Simulated assay, not measured.
Amino acid sequence: MDAIFHERQEGSLCAQHCLNSLLQGPYFSAVDLADIGRDLDEAERATMAEGDINSPEYLRFIQQPSSNMDDSGYFSIQVIGRAMKVWSLDLLPFGSTEAVEANIHPEREKAFICNFKDHWLTIRKIGRQWFNLNSLLTGPELISDTYLAMFLIQLQKEGYSLFVVRGTLPDNEADQLLNLIPVIQTIKPRLLSDLAQQQTPASTSTSTGESSSGKRLVSLEDLHNALQASQSSEARGTARGERLCSTLKSDNSQGLADAMKLSMQGMGDPSVDEKVDPEDLRRKRQAFFDRQQNQETRPSQGQVDSLQGEGHNTPAATHPHSQVQAGQPVLSEPTPEETNPQEPGAIGHSLETKLFANDDQMTEEAMLEIAIQMSLGGTQKLSSVSGTELQPQHGNGS
């Protein structure tokens, strides 16, 4: 479709566009057609002057404006016909006797020129297809052979005067190309007037800074200002970051100490911030030992039932770590906590019962440290306190 020569309307130069579309090239300009129009005016004036130049008809003729052209760019059918004579082409009225065949089989012709008031347009066959080359359209419009006759009848009903073009049209690239590859048109061209009406509201809203949808458009000046503001903001942020880095470097030691202090406070270690009352811890510890001793010395219900059933009432049988044999003394086997006191978590109920039965053997500092370790979950070793090894207290020679 791009190979087809088509001129869009400029001013009132539709006659120029019509001729160039017919010849498929920029063969005529407005100046060329104006020269042809002046030649026709001179020829008509000379014909009228053959009679009496003082006659009222001649005087009236020379006072009238030219009928072949005007200042707007309009040219008459005589100008178009004279221009076509240059290419040995003739124009025949569509209703004349010479054009009867064109009325019956219009698809067999080569081209038509149509005129309505001051507008001219060309309908031409390029390759094996027909096209409407109206300069008021955005581009060539494909017309099928079956629709061509109906289209010509429609133009006549709208008031157009039709002329059949006879003669040999000049060769052109579009004619050769479309003979090989026919055109398939999916989108029909639109009228330039409709396109202008659609663009006018958009241009009006653009001048006010708003689009057709009501949204404000962003101009290049707005984008430039926004870019400058972004760059200045980025520069200020960079300077602020550099000042912060220099401050941190100068106060590195103090900042590190403050951070460590805050970290220690956030840990919530009771041994750091909280004060411990030694008397309160001693009472709690003594009460805990008393409960443990009561649990160790009191036999379970199953052991009592077993002893009553066998008829034994030997106190040694209540010891959980003793074995009684006939004719042998009662021996107490060491517990795992006593054999491996260095093992973590070795503080059991039996060891806690034996440790520090008498508070007088403990120093104040040892009692405080034991109480702190017990409050932390009893997971640390109690084998030594302040460099002094603690021994279990044996009562009554046991």
Results as ranks from 00 to 15, higher is better:
residue 65 P to I: 01
residue 339 T to N: 00
residue 374 M to D: 11
residue 37 G to L: 08
residue 385 V to Y: 08
residue 340 N to F: 06
residue 204 T to M: 14
residue 84 M to E: 12
residue 369 E to A: 06
residue 65 P to C: 01
residue 235 A to N: 07
residue 184 I to V: 15
residue 375 S to K: 14
residue 192 L to D: 13
residue 35 D to S: 14
residue 88 S to G: 10
residue 280 D to N: 03
residue 167 G to V: 06
residue 94 F to E: 06
residue 309 G to Y: 11
residue 89 L to S: 10
residue 360 D to S: 07
residue 96 S to T: 01
residue 180 L to I: 15
residue 353 T to H: 03
residue 191 L to F: 09
residue 163 F to A: 07
residue 24 Q to D: 08
residue 231 Q to S: 10
residue 153 I to R: 03
residue 328 Q to A: 03
residue 188 K to A: 14
residue 41 D to V: 04
residue 95 G to A: 09
residue 97 T to D: 13
residue 151 F to E: 12
residue 168 T to K: 05
residue 383 S to R: 12
residue 141 E to W: 08
residue 31 V to H: 05
residue 92 L to I: 09
residue 292 Q to L: 12
residue 342 Q to N: 12
residue 36 I to H: 14
residue 18 C to M: 07
residue 156 Q to H: 03
residue 142 L to N: 03
residue 192 L to T: 13
residue 297 T to S: 07
residue 204 T to P: 04
residue 314 T to A: 10
residue 48 M to A: 14
residue 132 N to P: 06
residue 272 V to M: 09
residue 248 L to D: 05
residue 324 V to M: 06
residue 66 S to F: 06
residue 254 Q to R: 14
residue 348 G to R: 01
residue 59 L to M: 09
residue 163 F to T: 01
residue 148 L to M: 03
residue 392 P to G: 01
residue 84 M to T: 00
residue 316 A to L: 06
residue 152 L to S: 02
residue 200 T to A: 15
residue 46 A to M: 08
residue 27 Y to I: 12
residue 280 D to G: 05
residue 304 V to K: 15
residue 172 N to G: 06
residue 152 L to Q: 05
residue 119 H to M: 01
residue 282 R to Y: 02
residue 297 T to Y: 08
residue 223 L to D: 04
residue 229 A to E: 14
residue 158 E to K: 03
residue 127 G to M: 12
residue 260 M to S: 03
residue 11 G to H: 00
residue 214 G to T: 15
residue 17 H to F: 00
residue 64 Q to G: 02
residue 307 L to C: 11
residue 363 T to V: 07
residue 287 A to M: 13
residue 43 A to C: 13
residue 10 E to N: 08
residue 21 S to R: 00
residue 261 K to T: 06
residue 338 E to R: 00
residue 9 Q to T: 02
residue 210 E to W: 11
residue 374 M to E: 11
residue 191 L to I: 08
residue 301 Q to N: 05
residue 394 H to V: 00
residue 185 Q to L: 11
residue 96 S to M: 04
residue 395 G to W: 01
residue 152 L to I: 10
residue 219 S to H: 07
residue 146 T to S: 12
residue 56 P to D: 07
residue 174 A to V: 10
residue 244 L to F: 13
residue 97 T to E: 10
residue 118 D to A: 01
residue 252 N to D: 02
residue 43 A to Q: 15
residue 183 V to M: 09
residue 223 L to P: 02
residue 122 T to R: 08
residue 362 M to N: 01
residue 104 I to E: 12
residue 6 H to E: 03
residue 162 L to M: 02
residue 370 I to P: 01
residue 90 D to E: 10
residue 173 E to G: 04
residue 376 L to S: 15
residue 387 G to A: 10
residue 160 Y to T: 00
residue 378 G to Y: 12
residue 263 S to W: 09
residue 106 P to Q: 04
residue 217 L to S: 06
residue 176 Q to V: 09
residue 228 Q to P: 04
residue 86 V to R: 11
residue 79 V to A: 05
residue 176 Q to K: 09
residue 358 N to M: 10
residue 23 L to W: 08
residue 387 G to L: 09
residue 27 Y to C: 12
residue 364 E to N: 10
residue 214 G to D: 14
residue 258 D to M: 04
residue 347 I to Q: 05
residue 39 D to I: 10
residue 381 K to D: 13
residue 273 D to N: 02
residue 263 S to V: 06
